[in-house]
Design a protein around this nucleic acid. Structure first.
Length: 282
DNA sequence: CTAGGATCCTGTCAGC
DNA sequence: TGCTGACAGGATCCTA
């Protein structure tokens, strides 16, 4: 899915386009993609758009919330005078809405629309009241985001997972929030650590560098989000995405490392495709 | 408690 | 062409 930087990009886009708008109708095209009662949303004004890790939280005037999780292939697409699309980069950005992968969409009273697309149907929108939000399992187990985590706490967390590969540990949202497959690989590259190393093989300097790397690569991506999204909306599609600009290892297997000139390779760690530089990651 | 694997679902691509 | 298996920007559930 969209990882934390993309979800934050969506949050900012929604802040611009749907904050203070009133929901007129909700169309549920796939039952699995929508949890709760849509009646709680009708006629309600959107008063806040928040994010925790990779989850979006949309607050309504009646104090109900929508939690949106895009998982692997979710996208949010706003269509009004302007168009805004973010999330999973494949397809859907240019096609007519609702499209083949539209699962839920909203009509607003001013005539604009918001579409939730999700090819694989792993994502969802859930309608929750205050209590439901408070008791949500995913939100409750969510660890702090990298920039809210002290190096001491990151180090302590690593000690709890001595035998696990470092990549598996930073992908677990209960250990550190917001890291996904791209930034796990990019963070390990930044810290010059091989992603399958056991946690207890890292020294304190490597752990500190890894935490800083996760902050750096995710923040850089958030900062570039705005211009990236403009590229997606154009008819010529997703060329020039931030991946091509910022990724040092992700999907660069067979290419030259920009840091040491070595070869980028791909393997499998924690059940996920994993990219690394053979030359400078130890 | 942790670690590892299967699983949810649809689509695409490489290899026969 | 048609089939098959692998894989995909995530998280959960089950087992050991």
């Amino acid at each position: 899915m969209p990882e934390l930087p993309e979800v934050e990009t969506i949050r900012r886009g929604l802040d611009k386009f749907i904050l203070n708008q009133t929901i007129q109708e909700v169309h549920v095209l796939c039952e699995k993609s929508f949890r709760g009662n849509k009646k709680w949303l009708l006629g309600q004004k959107i008063i806040k758009i928040d994010r925790r890790g990779k989850a979006l939280l949309i607050q309504l005037e009646n104090n109900m919330w929508m939690m949106v999780h895009l998982r692997m292939t979710g996208q949010m697409i706003f269509v009004g005078d302007e168009k805004f699309a973010a999330g999973h980069p494949d397809g859907g950005f240019t096609e007519k809405m609702p499209g083949r992968h539209t699962r839920v969409y909203f009509d607003f009273t001013n005539g604009t629309h918001l579409y939730f697309n999700d090819q694989r149907k792993f994502g969802f929108i859930a309608v929750l009241d205050e209590l439901g939000l408070h008791e949500d399992k995913f939100l409750n187990k969510l660890a702090p985001e990298p920039w809210d985590m002290k190096p001491d706490d990151f180090w302590t967390m690593l000690q709890r997972h001595k035998a696990a590969p470092i990549k598996a540990v930073i992908l677990d949202q209960g250990n550190i929030a917001g890291v996904g497959n791209i930034y796990a690989d990019e963070g390990c590259f930044y810290a010059k650590i091989l992603p399958w190393r056991r946690c207890d093989s890292l020294d304190r300097d490597e752990a500190d560098l890894l935490l800083r790397g996760l902050c750096e690569v995710m923040q850089a991506s958030i900062d570039s989000g705005g211009s990236t999204m403009k590229d997606y909306v154009r008819a010529d599609g997703t060329k020039g995405s931030y991946l091509e600009k910022f990724a040092q290892v992700f999907r660069r297997e067979g290419l030259e490392c920009r840091r040491c000139g070595g070869m980028i390779e791909k393997t499998r760690v924690a059940g996920r495709g994993t990219h690394y530089c053979k030359g400078c990651q130890k």
